[in-house]
Design a binder for these strands. Structure first.
Length: 572
RNA sequence: CGGGAUGUAGCGCAGCUUGGUAGCGCGUCUGGUUCGGGACCAGAAGGCCGCAGGUUCGAAUCCUGUCAUCCCGACCA
């Protein structure tokens, strides 16, 4: 492609709307443009990257036994009512009405659609397992679209659905997809990590997320260097608390006046009680019931764990008024002693001795509180967020935390949708059984942003070879010099003939402009044709991620570029 | 949806406090000189000051409403 013909409007300045690197660079380099919040057009360079990503995904899905289909974006309301999700999905679903007043949704996901399809066409165990996927736009009216392509309202997703006879079959499909996802992100040359994920309300089934590691990631990953353990912080657990401090003898419970002291920090500063010798009491409303959760003072509650434990639909922090209805104190003076509510205790609290907490009386705290003697919790469980330094549940080593971008999610669904939509089959014994399903998603457009988050420098994007929009850019330093242009055109023709993807920057621009643009759009290999080297029949070749160029004889440059490309395409 | 901020030329911004002819830089177009890391000179085009209403002789500026965009919290690929 000649740069003079290529539609890639680059910007010298950072659009003020863009906050994170991938958004800024994709806009500046002319890959995307915004249509409205969370809705983007992909310009030619962006489209090419998407195609590369899609093709890698497609090849690996096919290799794993998947078959590509394409389902409607517009989905009838009735389908969603059958699974109850017309209501459950809530405001996040884009809805529309046709001229006959029939309701439709713009597909946020396709379980309903695919299950109905499979139900209609598949009736025998002989047809299972079946793995169907598509690569297509999804629509979710996110409360807050964010960070350019990172969280769009319209985005491109690969979604595969597996249908198996039973749980054993599902295990096999699940493992196939897990391995295919590893292959995909390795082929994309992205640094990623597979983590255990919360499977949410759908059930206690297995679920893993594929995280591309980047500081700007919205997720926190807790992992262990000493072993394989890695989990989303939503799900992460740590080893059982050690009971070293338990030797302290139990001191008598004592109530002390603490006027004006409300926070953990207040007690640390004024009374010199360390955070980890305090217990904090959080009041929650779970489907209308007010209950207390107690944690060590330096810990944070993990609401997802709490919600999963309770199995409730609505969970939010109680307001002070509801708290005062059951207790004589407000926030800042709450504690588990004589509290008239269910008390869920984080297990870490059970090894504490002689700790302090609110006295359920404004302006008073207890010290030397002890579990069992002074109060008895309703339940003990794991309700805290794991943090860096906590011991690994598998090997007890100190764990670390890192940020990640969730680009893939594999998920065992079980029979939730096949039951609701009657996707049954006959087994070898002639019995009718529900198909066991799994679903497996990759955010393709998000992956594009994630790749940039992981590969850039001060000058622009540095595309990994397998997903670069073009592999080589040829820059004649001065397009008006005939000898330079002739050499550039020769090399251009040669590289094209070798099947390489090449841009020839034939624009009548100064060298600096061409170099800046080449760096900005992130083409991996730059071939510069300048007067000095040309006199010796040489050109300069520079890899985008290196600082120094090397001189190469013109008749060797094709083979040289080919070798760099091949290396970039095959390395992990 | 709550909290915070911003809407002025394609992009980045000033002007608003104290109402009085809409500005700067970059980009674009024309001509010329340049030509190995975002050139220089001369000229030109380009704006419903987000939108609606109000106050006023007069509103980018003050008031009210509204829409959009961005950031912080609950959702997810």
């Amino acid at each position: 492609m000649k740069a003079s013909q290529l539609f890639y409007p680059t910007l010298r300045e950072v659009p003020s709307e863009a906050e994170i690197v991938s958004h800024q660079l994709l806009l500046r380099a002319g890959f995307i443009r915004k249509a409205s919040a969370g809705v983007y057009s992909y310009l030619p360079l962006g489209r090419r990257v998407l195609r590369k990503l899609e093709n890698i995904v497609r090849e690996e899905m096919d290799k794993a036994g998947g078959q590509e289909v394409l389902m409607p974006i517009i989905q009838p309301r009735e389908l969603w009512e059958r699974t109850g999700r017309w209501t459950v999905y809530g405001d996040e679903m884009f809805r529309l009405t046709d001229r006959h007043n029939r309701g439709f949704a713009l597909g946020p996901t396709h379980e309903e659609m695919i299950t109905t399809l499979v139900d209609a066409e598949v009736h025998s165990y002989r047809d299972l397992p079946l793995l169907l996927y598509q690569i297509q736009n999804k629509y979710r009216d996110e409360i807050r679209p964010r960070f350019g392509l990172m969280r769009g309202r319209e985005f491109i997703m690969k979604d595969l659905y597996s249908f198996d006879e039973d749980d054993d079959g599902l295990d096999i499909s699940y493992r196939k997809m897990y391995a295919a996802y590893q292959a995909i992100f390795e082929r994309m040359a992205l640094k990623y990590r597979v983590v255990e994920a919360d499977s949410g309300a759908i059930g206690g089934n297995e679920s893993h997320e594929f995280m591309v590691l980047a500081d700007s990631g919205e997720c926190t990953v807790i992992y262990c260097d000493a072993c394989d353990y890695a989990a989303n912080v939503e799900k992460a657990v740590c080893a059982e608390p050690k009971a070293e401090a338990n030797l302290d003898k139990l001191e008598p419970l004592e109530k002390i006046a603490t006027p004006g002291l409300r926070t953990i920090q207040d007690l640390v500063e004024q009374l010199h009680i360390p955070e980890e010798k305090q217990v904090k009491t959080l009041m929650y409303s779970a489907d209308g019931e007010i209950l207390a959760v107690i944690l060590r003072g330096d810990r944070e509650l993990n609401e997802i764990k709490l919600k999963n434990y309770l199995g409730c639909n609505q969970l939010f922090m109680a307001d002070e008024e509801s708290v005062r209805n059951i207790c004589a104190a407000g926030f800042g003076s709450l504690g588990p002693v004589s509290l008239k509510a269910k008390i869920l205790m984080d297990k870490e609290v059970s090894v504490l001795r002689n700790f302090s907490c609110g006295a359920n009386e404004d302006g008073f705290h207890y010290i030397n509180v002890n579990v069992g003697r002074d109060f008895v919790p309703t339940a003990v469980g794991d309700f805290k967020n794991v943090i860096e330094g906590d011991p690994c549940p598998a090997c007890n080593s100190s764990m670390k935390a890192i940020r990640g971008i969730e680009v893939g999610h594999v998920f065992k669904l079980g029979t939730k949708y096949s039951d609701a939509l009657h996707a049954f089959y006959r087994n070898a014994e002639g019995e009718e059984k529900a198909m066991v399903m799994g679903c497996y998603g990759i955010g393709v457009s998000r992956t594009m942003a994630a790749a940039v988050e992981q590969n850039y420098d001060a000058n622009g994007i540095i595309w990994p070879m397998p997903i670069a929009p073009y592999q080589v850019i040829i820059i004649p330093v001065n397009s008006q010099k005939e000898d330079q242009m002739r050499a550039a055109l020769d090399i251009y023709a040669e590289l094209l003939g070798m099947g390489l993807e090449v841009i020839l920057d034939d624009r009548d621009e100064r060298a600096g402009v061409k170099f800046k643009d080449a760096d900005l759009i992130g083409i991996p290999i730059k071939i510069t044709i300048g007067p000095k080297a040309l006199q010796e029949n040489q050109v300069e070749v520079k890899k985008r991620w290196e600082t120094e160029a090397v001189r190469i004889e013109i008749d060797r440059v094709g083979a040289f570029a080919r070798a760099i490309v091949d290396e970039g395409l095959t390395q992990k």
